[in-house]
Write a protein that binds this DNA or RNA. Structure first.
Lengths: 355, 355
DNA sequence: GTGAAAGCGCTAACAC
DNA sequence: GTGTTAGCGCTTTCAC
């Protein structure tokens, strides 16, 4: 019927014909331009709606020389098979989706493994996206640096690494570590085990907070009380099982993710060790799951919605020529059943948690 | 420097100029056309790579009259504030991302609440996506029907509803319900409580399986042993807490999601009820989390990777003019610690689960 | 084997 | 206030 390639989709020219005006008028009317007669505009808008017309975004982008899409890149570890790695990332992803949508951007979701990290430049180069949000930094620091210095608008969720030239958003990991550790000290705990792989920048910072808190309370780090547990669930479980098989000389755990804390809790329970009575446990991330499990998990909260906004702002800011920045968001402790303050009497505590 | 709008991005004309050929030749070379001289092609490809050139996808799409993007729609319940509702959906989302990527499609992620469900037509109408995958069906059955009958290529994850005119992919919920219930019967349980809101099509089917299994074993449904627990985490917790406050007259639970099962486990533990000794629990979805918690969760597995492939195939198939179909994927039971077969001796069981 | 030219659907000067 | 025109970056006939 029609000579266009795109099947028989309604387009502006159709509306123009029916309305008896030119395409430009249709374009203007639909864009809400005030230059077009009120009545004409109304008529055109009505018509478009009744025809369920949506302007071709590709053509718009082409003409305007820009897209309204932001690419979000999720890491895909080549090691594990997990479809989407960390529940925390997912929560962040959800917030990002909402933030982008509510501000009129489309979200292009991509999963890449480390080997493909350089390919993501094509997302912008091809005009598919105007910028990139990268969730998770261990997609090679150097690759991100390279991308950024090549002018790709990019904002990364991760730890503030010294010498980063890319826009980075993260929470105050050091403070988080401090809060968690101080709380465990306040619970009267003396042997606080740190669970996390300090080769990861964010974990390293949490560890610093851990150390700070110990020192501030007249203690120091005991190397026997640190274990490089990985984030990935299965590997974490193995590592924790191995750890607990060899030592039980601790009265508190500070885990670098809620998932890790939950796994630890499960393994402790299987050994008959009670949480929080025998061992107090603090997690990290404050997943919504943290308040669903038994015992509910004391955790360090990261402000997800703010993080999503900051990442979006970051991409747009860099795209406008802004210089790389670090945005550090506050963290806070959320107390739940997996820890027990020393000062609280047993009855007071149980009354409090009954709620 | 250049007169184009899209900043100063490299484009074909630049490559053509440098290589001393025409744009058409560059286009052909990059498309891998055999019509172009081998050497010329090689030279151009090299050049393009060294310039980190990516062809403008918008222009390609416009010219070719089609896009290589598939929109994935995730429900956003207006009721709750959860960024992304169900962990199961997330897992499916991850698989979809991988399936799409590996087959050369981009994924546009959108979250919509029920009120906006009609807007998703614009994703296709605007040429942003060639089709839509909808995760979760309670985005109004009728709206999906309307979209489909209007020719929007759409494939939905959900339950096979009678009279659906849209392409639907789901797992065998009835079988799943049967397997779970039969297993609990095999565990010697007599009072098996069904947890789930049967107003949801998928849950209704699982309930049918539950009933089938009871009847096949000479029993029948006891209305006192069903509770309409919702999927959403917080509401589920409230409902379960309420339930357990009023009754403890059951020796097994069949929960319609792993999240629900985990929450139930947590609440039972808080009441000193042991799983699996006092109460056996079966979940649904087989989240990766199911093997991380204590006790690890017996669950009904849905084949996620297959589901993702089927959804993608479905969209493409419908787009090619294929008629709506129902694809029902098999489900299977994964036994873990939260249930205990009657036949297994205590030592045999513990040896088995030690693994 | 390569180039010239047309045109995908839209927007934005520029005319009137 | 509306129409005419040019052109976004690419692909693809159609010539040669």
């Amino acid at each position: 019927m029609s000579k266009n390639l795109t099947s028989n989709k309604t387009q502006m020219v159709d509306i123009a014909r029916i309305a008896g005006v030119s395409v430009s008028t249709v374009s203007r009317a639909l864009a809400g331009s005030t230059l077009v007669n009120d009545e004409t505009r109304k008529r055109i808008v009505e018509l478009a709606k009744s025809l369920r017309f949506s302007a071709n975004v590709g053509a718009q982008n082409l003409r305007r020389g820009q897209s309204q899409t932001i690419a979000v890149v999720l890491p895909k570890s080549t090691a594990d098979q997990q479809p989407v790695s960390d529940p925390f990332f997912i929560a962040l992803l959800g917030e990002l989706a909402d933030a982008l949508t509510s501000r009129g951007y489309d979200m292009l979701l991509t999963r890449v493994d480390e080997a493909q990290i350089d390919d993501i430049e094509g997302l912008v180069g091809s005009g598919r996206a105007l910028g990139i949000v990268v969730i998770g930094q261990w997609l090679h620091h150097y690759a991100l640096t390279a991308l950024s210095s090549r002018g790709i608008p990019i904002a990364v969720w991760g730890a503030a690494l010294p010498g980063s030239n890319y826009f980075i958003v993260g929470s105050d990991n050091r403070l988080g570590g401090q809060l968690a550790t101080q709380h465990l000290i306040d619970c009267g705990r003396k042997k606080i085990m740190f669970l996390g792989d300090t080769r990861l920048p964010e974990v390293a910072l949490r560890f610093e907070g851990y150390r700070d808190a110990l020192i501030a309370n007249g203690g120091m780090v005991n190397p026997g009380l640190t274990a490089a547990i990985p984030f990935e669930a299965k590997a974490a479980r193995r590592a924790l099982a191995d750890l607990f098989a060899h030592t039980s000389d601790f009265d508190a755990l500070f885990a670098c993710s809620d998932l890790m804390a939950m796994t630890a809790n499960a393994l402790l329970a299987a050994r008959g060790i009670r949480v929080p009575q025998d061992v107090c446990v603090v997690g990290y991330d404050d997943l919504s799951l943290a308040s669903q499990v038994h015992p509910t998990l004391t955790s360090v909260r990261q402000p997800l919605a703010d993080a999503a906004q900051a990442l979006l702002d970051g991409v747009l800011y860099v795209r406008e020529g802004g210089a790389a920045k670090m945005v550090i968001l506050p963290t806070g402790l959320v107390e739940r059943e997996s820890t027990l303050r020393r000062s609280a009497t047993k009855s007071a505590k149980s009354a409090q948690t009954k709620k």
